[in-house]
Amino acid sequence: MSLVREALLVAGKDLRIEARSRVTLAQIVPFGGIVVLLFAFALDPARGNLPRVAPGLFWVAVLLAALMALSRSFAVEARNSARDGLRLSGLDGSAVFLGKAMAVAAQLVALETVLGTLVVLLYDVHVSAWSVVLLSAVAATAGLAATGTLFGVLAAGSRRRETLLPLLLLPVVTPVMLGATRAFEAGLEGAPSEAWRWIGLLVLFAVLYLSAGVLAFDALWEEAE
């Protein structure tokens, strides 16, 4: 079986679990929505701040909700010896990594779509270059999914995982936060030429951590308890 097919199997499994439990849709996306509302309370929309800082707020909201989705992604493996089952299935560790990252990415895309719509509607944001916005969102999502899955399994196998994951992940993804926010700003303000270097950075980050995951996941996966 090829790597891609194996990865799709794992991704399909995770998404099927999501389809049946609806945790992302029913809990994590609404959580992101309330964060978007909270920012408006904190930054008083009457002062006209919101459109200016909307890209940053959007990505902070995505990041916070993503942490929950990642915890969830490894919590489902912890119960009913699911991890042992997956390990015994003979699937390659790299495929498990790519599959889980794909499933996380798919959930992030759903999350970003909903939160993006909310931000555009509630914060009075005008997008001038959709190509820039969409491209940077895709690259940032890939980077977040890769690092998140990598650190998810690193911190897996302990009761302290939920609290450790944010501390591990957030410093590592600072470049994503910076790059995605700057690229979005360029896409909104109509200066798309400035966005390309940030998109390049986001792509580099995603490639770097996808490769790191493919290389290292097998070893980490074996060790996880």
């Binding site: 600072t174 470049p175 910076l178 790059g179 270097r197 940030w198 950075l201 580099l204 980050f205 770097l208």
Partner: peptide
């Protein structure tokens, strides 16, 4: 990566 992004 952090260094370059922050630098930019």
């Amino acid at each position: 990566v952090v260094h370059f992004s922050v630098n930019w």
